[in-house]
Design a binder for these strands. Structure first.
Lengths: 339, 339
DNA sequence: AATTGATTTGTAATCGATTGCAAAATCTCT
DNA sequence: AGAGATTTTGCAATCGATTACAAATCAATT
């Protein structure tokens, strides 16, 4: 490994001071075109490369943002990653992955990294914050944190979100419009605000459609395929099974459909199913899944853009951005059997 | 924002020099238990936090590894990420995401980051390297790069891989054993070594089973759902359609199954399908997909462990590790129709 | 030619740690 | 008690950039 060229070497070769080199290379207007050229020439000749570590120490930035999720292997995040990555790299930021596994200590760790300057900002997708952390205590709209996907209550942090309640209502109305009367909802875990909002949308839509919600029609899962399976089992083992399901995410919907299949029930002939998320696979599932689509790449882009605005103190933008969802009708829903 | 405490402040408070503070905090054996205690106490009292940037500059490390993929939103990577993350964080390394989109310039960018010390190592999952990059030119088994998933030819870099050819053979033999004679293979893009190996396995197995491969039985896709669809269309539009498909990855298999469904062909009654990868969704697809499973989390762990070995110059480990795959038989394959 | 003002460059401090080397303190042994 | 060996500590350089401030250069004006 050959010796790294540093700014000092260029200074010597170009016959100027290190200050001038630094300025020339960063296109400062303080230096003449002639010197700038001389320095540039020396730099390329010596094959100079900036030492990012040194620079970051001096300018007190790290040019990195933390992307914190609760479970790295959830496919839902993928396209958000992509949107974030796109904007981040365009702005010269690198992406640090954070994975909390819903563990409080890990959450603290990432907040520590932010406080300690290992990252200049954070995109938080865990729906959770260590309430006792100093960053959280004096958080404001100027704190370089953007909460995406999952709202965090009682915080005035910047948010990018969708209207979960309205989207859920739309899904349920779609089923009601198809003539379904017995519509059940497979919930996400209830402490989470996300799940609560979708549940709320379900209830509102049912009320608006003048439909009852039997006691057992709101089984609670945890967003996993497995739990979708179990919730469906509970629903269809009981008396008075539904003819339609609104499921809080696509993965549980897949689980539910699998369970229905095992019981010899056809989708959509016997039971209609609507999911939520529109995973990459949902359109080619069999049957292709009717679901709520979120503009995930766009959510990622927006979140990162907002974060940059905060970091660069361009405060113009609003602190909360709401993204549009849409109901994608595919083949997993059909008219209710008119018996 | 309060002033950050630095090592100097602790030194003052504890009445020692900065050198001693540094040593005490890093548990150097050079300092007495008494002083160490004094320093520790001052540090917690002042709420001291190490400035990682400064430290990294001084020790010439960045405690970061680059995870480079060709397409960030490919769900296949997810569990590998997880395995890598697990080992990396345990060793105190952070994960930098790199996304090349198969763009040469971007690949160069990440190799630059490695050379410039923005990362101490790299896990490469693109199957590609910028051949003209200085790091590549003098790469050896000691270069802190571990190639995972996709082999790179003519390089003596460390690899973690599976035996694609053998796994493909196993898949095809499974179909042959079920009595299928007309078995087609939907390939991945052929410049890639991965695709070529799986194709080779298919051909070998067909030869071993004494089966012919008609001219049109090796359509080429690009690993996307869409292309699986198209390949299936081509196969079944033609005369002499197959009764079984070995598809080079699960996503294309989903696409193919979707297309079969649209044509009124049932899986597995009319056509058997075997995939490759065992995505999280494959087990609950309808029908649950027979496929080759790779130990993805384990691949990630192994890759990161090897990388750490290289970084820490613990050269003991072998440069190439081969991981075991297994055929998971589910419901997308069945006995051939005996007509 | 001298003065003033505007540009351009250089000197040296700084970011906040780590560490080689020398000095000081402690311990061992006669 | 004193010499020598050993253990602890401190001084100051270093990592490689950026930047405040001072100095030098240049241009314009009288």
């Amino acid at each position: 490994m050959s010796e790294r060229t540093k700014i000092k070497d260029i200074a010597r070769v170009a016959g100027v001071s290190t200050a001038t080199v630094s300025r020339a290379l960063s296109d400062s207007s303080l230096v003449t075109e002639r010197t700038r050229e001389k320095v540039r020439e020396a730099a390329t000749r010596l094959n100079y490369r900036l030492n990012v570590r040194a620079r970051n120490l001096r300018i007190q930035k790290s040019m990195a943002v933390l992307l914190v999720v609760r479970n790295m292997s959830n496919p839902f995040y993928l396209e958000i990653f992509k949107g974030v990555e796109e904007v981040a790299r365009a702005a010269g930021f690198v992406l640090l992955m954070g994975n909390t596994e819903d563990d409080h200590d890990r959450e603290v760790e990432y907040f520590d990294m932010l406080r300690d300057g290992q990252a200049d900002g954070m995109i938080l997708m865990t729906g959770n914050m260590p309430a006792d952390h100093e960053i959280v205590r004096d958080a404001s709209g100027m704190t370089p944190i953007v909460v995406a996907l999952e709202a965090i209550e009682n915080s005035n942090l910047a948010h990018v979100q969708i209207d979960n309640c309205a989207a859920a209502k739309q899904a349920v109305h779609h089923l009601a419009d198809l003539g379904h009367k017995r519509i059940a909802h497979i919930c996400g875990p209830l402490p989470e605000i996300l799940s609560r909002l979708r549940l709320e949308g379900y209830r509102k839509a049912m009320a608006e459609a003048g439909l009852d919600i039997p006691a057992n029609y709101e089984p609670v899962g945890n967003y996993s395929i497995q739990s979708g399976c179990e919730c469906a089992r509970a629903l269809f083992d009981d008396v008075n099974p539904p003819t339609a399901l609104f499921v809080a995410n696509d993965e549980m919907a897949f689980g539910a459909i699998g369970e229905l299949r095992r019981r010899g029930l056809r989708v959509p002939e016997d039971v209609s199913v609507v999911g939520f998320d529109d995973l990459f696979i949902s359109q080619s599932y069999s049957p292709p899944l009717t679901t709520i689509s979120q503009p995930r790449v766009e959510i990622g882009r927006t979140a990162m853009t907002m974060l940059l605005d905060i970091i660069n103190a361009r405060l113009s933008s609003p602190v909360v951005t709401e993204m549009q969802t849409s109901l994608i009708v595919r083949e997993s829903t059909g008219a209710a059997d008119q018996r």
